[in-house]
Amino acid sequence: MKTKIKKLLEEGRVDGFFAYKTIHGFFFPYLFTKENMDELEDWKPSSARYPIAKLLLAQARKNPEKTYGVLVRGCEERAVHELYKWNQLDREKVVMVGQACTADLAADCECWKPFPTDVAYGEAVEPVAKSARVEMLEKMAGEDRLKWWLGHFNRCVKCFGCRDVCPVCFCTECSLEHNKLVETDKLPPDSSFHLVRAIHMGGRCIDCGLCEEVCPANIPLRVLYKEVGKLVEEVYGYKPGSDDGKSPFTFLGDELMLPPGPR
């Protein structure tokens, strides 16, 4: 990590680089610049995950003229790709250096691509093709599934953690805070709170799972968004996070791409 990132900073290819630094024995995301590049550490595998794409987005918005580098995992690379497509980040202003996830982390995440396109650090491990949790839910009868979800949604404390940590939730105004759509002063919130968020994740969620990791109530949000992603892929053949293509909900398209239905 030292040499590669240092070189980018020294050459002036990037103005800042988002990587990790050990603080009190823990990995923390850290912005390295020319001034503090001597603090760069050697790369080592870890399971620490942070919304690094979101930090990058915040900095890029503040300093639109600057170029930033970022150390990405598979999911973080997908997030950056998605932010390109939604015109939130400039392709020319971002340099990505990839790191692969460990096999343990990939299995834990049920990740379908636990490595970025170019792996600079670590060894790429086998992806997990199917989510066991989604399959478990799909086998359930409809009524039980509703009860299962409502039982989980019931614990929601409406902390907005899932939204705040989400790397692809880039809107500056959020419909979840609109009191005509989601009632304020109500706990647990209407279960439509979670469904509305799920709808917004359609064609956007890159399956990083930070939402579930950060949830203080342990709501299995990732399963919900995994299914959302699966639906979009099945019906429209679009998988968020790929380098090309666009979410089917961002453009009208032509008649040929419409799903079957009444005509």
């Binding site: 359930m140 509703l146 469904l195 959302v228 419409l258």
Partner: peptide, 28 residues
């Protein structure tokens, strides 16, 4: 075009949430 795209997606989502997708209907 957007209506049909959304409706198709909503059907799947309602189903996964345990709600009967037959309760939503799109007609021209």
């Amino acid at each position: 075009y957007m209506t049909i795209k959304r409706a198709k997606f909503m059907e799947g989502l309602l189903n996964f949430a345990g709600y009967s997708p037959e309760r939503l209907r799109l007609e021209w």
